[in-house]
């Protein structure tokens, strides 16, 4: 029924290092539908981020191919947005400067891009902080800037690489809740990487469980719970339990 947005076809990735080749991604075939929120869930260090980087074009695949919207991905590009674990905000730019960066380098006029950036700054709840520098903001607020910056380029797909991994538990819950609100308002295809099962079940339309390195897709779960989800709903807890028992133990 819905369109296939991202297609990973037999993707593998091997890094050449001084100690020989390291095979990080085994053989992954995966599709992500338009406006779907897919969570890549797996143990720590299993290659989730590498798989995400292959999908976004930051890394090149060794074999196989990634296509987004019918186009083969082999380099970074503004049709894809990335939210990073370590935020990767430009520290010398203000919140406004960071959010409008994408449209600016792509040549959008100042008034147009300011208006657009303001819309996304408001969307993530940072109205009034436009002129603050990243180091003046809390971790949660910095990640909101990261989300607004990725959204502001109006990409087809958004890749989120453990964006809440560095936040404290309380902020993390709040950010998960707000991310769903933002996403429901501005639907995009999202691939979200996490090693936190609670986060995975809370956010996902579908969870792809990954194995240890070299990673492959072990199994997939459709999560059909209504939103907003309740962390202590019996069905939520059952899914959490079931998926936890399937995933490999981190080394």
């Amino acid at each position: 029924m819905s369109k296939e947005m991202i297609i990973c076809d037999n993707v593998s990735k091997t890094f050449e290092t001084s100690r020989g080749d390291v095979n990080v991604i085994g053989n992954v075939s995966l599709t992500v539908n338009e406006n779907e929120l897919l969570v890549l869930f797996g143990p720590g260090q299993c290659g989730k981020s590498t798989l995400l980087n292959c999908m976004s074009g930051l890394e090149r695949v060794t074999t196989g191919s990634v296509t987004i919207n019918g186009r083969t991905i082999d380099s970074p590009g503004p049709d894809r947005g990335v939210v990073y674990q370590r935020t990767a905000l430009f520290p010398w730019l203000t919140v406004m400067g960071n959010v409008e960066y994408g449209p600016k380098v792509r040549g959008m006029s100042k008034s147009e891009r300011r208006e657009k950036a303001q819309y996304y700054i408001n969307l993530v709840g940072l109205e009034g902080f436009e002129n603050s520098y990243p180091n003046q903001l809390s971790g949660g607020m910095q990640q909101r800037v990261g989300i607004a910056r990725a959204y502001c380029n109006e990409p087809d797909v958004l890749f989120m690489d453990e964006p809440f991994g560095h936040l404290d538990a309380q902020t993390r819950y709040l950010m998960q809740e707000d991310l769903i609100k933002i996403w429901e308002k501005e639907k995009r295809t999202v691939v979200f990487v996490t090693n936190n099962i609670e986060e995975a079940v809370y956010l996902a339309d579908r969870i792809a469980v990954l194995t240890n390195c070299p990673t492959t897709v072990k199994t997939e779960y459709e999560i059909n719970l209504p939103r907003p989800r309740d962390y202590i709903d019996p069905e939520f807890l059952r899914l959490r339990e079931e998926i936890s028992s399937v995933v490999d133990k981190a080394l």
Binding site: V82, Y84, A88, F90, W92, V105, R149
Partner: peptide
């Protein structure tokens, strides 16, 4: 210069010249 920032800039659509002037120089 943090390679992640360069990656982020390219991802947002910056070309080589823009990466140099807007990321490498200020950092």
């Amino acid at each position: 210069v943090d390679p992640e920032l360069i990656g982020a800039a390219r991802m947002l659509g910056a070309n080589n010249r823009q990466v140099f002037t807007t990321i490498v120089l200020p950092s």
